[in-house]
């Protein structure tokens, strides 16, 4: 629950055999490092390991996942910024690397890295306990209007996207709810299950077990379109609440990557997203494929950073 104190940094290098790959040596390196600040078994770690498994044969490269934990991604960003821009090392990006850069003064920030591609959005969902009276977000809005500050919404960490979107929710809908922050998604689920909070914000992957068991129920998604996995769950947009969260997952590298390397990745990732086995995995995870080439990924990161910066400034959340 409280991972705040745990900054275990370690390198779990999976042993790989490099013989088979050398045959297809289009890519300038036979071994490529993928760095994540997530711990082994964590979200981005599992994602990168799956990616290595399926992208390896496509690009003719051996991927090695390295967990560089600590400082909310500050360590990993420093490693990347100090690495050669030759295509031998990349970083699995999530919004937290931008947030860490904005909230502290790390040695290297997200602006010292260059996005390569974007692959997915993690859909942000609103959920309730199975026996809750709420059927969709409109119900929540109505209840919040009749009982200001009485509806309790559980979100994960203070600088998370969940938090930001709920602050926006209040402005957009003209309501006042109580927003309860936690140390991570797991605590949010517990506090929705035990009735401390009436509404929770989270991601599909961590909710799956509870949804399948009928303990929790999705009521709305903050996505552009309804999710394939849950076609009956309305989006916020459909209900007239214009909130869409783009929690991205992509890759970034050191600045100044050669063009052929970027092209190899853009092509490789597009093939990967079409790969049936990989597709089966990510569809089961409930993520939305959202391929963007380097230009698109750069624009996405910049836009996201601007939004977060505005949010942090508005609420006076800043580095000392």
């Amino acid at each position: 629950m409280k991972y705040r104190h745990f900054l275990g940094a370690l390198v779990a290098v999976s042993a790989t055999v490099s013989l088979a790959a050398e045959a297809l040596a289009d890519y300038p390196h036979s071994t490529v490092k993928l760095v994540t600040h997530s711990s082994p078994g964590g979200g981005t770690d599992v994602f990168l390991r799956k990616l290595s498994q399926h992208l390896g044969p496509i690009m003719g490269v051996n991927f090695v996942v390295e967990n560089v934990r600590g400082g909310g991604g500050a360590k990993a960003m420093a490693v990347l910024a100090n690495s050669p821009a030759d295509g031998s090392i990349f970083y699995g990006t999530t919004p937290s690397y931008v947030n860490t850069s904005l909230l502290s003064s790390p040695e290297a920030s997200f602006t010292d890295l260059d996005p390569v591609v974007n692959m997915f959005y993690d859909p942000q969902v609103v959920y309730v306990r199975a026996n809750s009276p709420y059927q969709d977000l409109t119900d929540v809005v109505e209840d919040a209007k009749s009982r200001p500050q009485q509806v309790i919404v559980a979100v994960s960490t203070p600088s998370s996207l969940d938090r930001q979107v709920m602050e926006q929710f209040q402005t957009v809908t003209g309501t006042e709810v109580t927003i309860l922050t936690h140390d991570g998604g797991g605590d949010v689920i517990l506090n929705v299950l035990n009735g401390t909070a009436q509404v929770g914000i989270g991601e599909i992957a961590e909710l799956r077990g509870q949804i399948d068991a009928g303990e929790l129920r999705l009521i709305t998604t903050y996505t552009d379109e309804r999710l394939d996995l849950f076609p009956d769950v309305k989006t916020a947009k459909e209900q007239g609440i214009d909130l869409v969260v783009r929690k991205f997952r992509g890759l970034a590298g050191p600045k100044g990557l050669p063009e052929d390397v970027v092209t190899a990745w853009e092509e490789g990732i597009q093939k990967l997203l079409a790969d049936p086995e990989f597709k089966a995995w990510y569809e089961g995870e409930g993520v939305i494929p959202a391929y963007l080439d380097q230009e698109g990924a750069r624009a996405l990161t910049a836009e996201f950073a601007t939004e977060m910066k505005a949010f942090f400034t508005e609420y006076n959340i800043q580095a000392e």
Partner: peptide, 8 residues
């Protein structure tokens, strides 16, 4: 006392 004040 110098900790930034936040409404949150």
């Amino acid at each position: 006392d110098a900790i930034p004040k936040s409404r949150l």
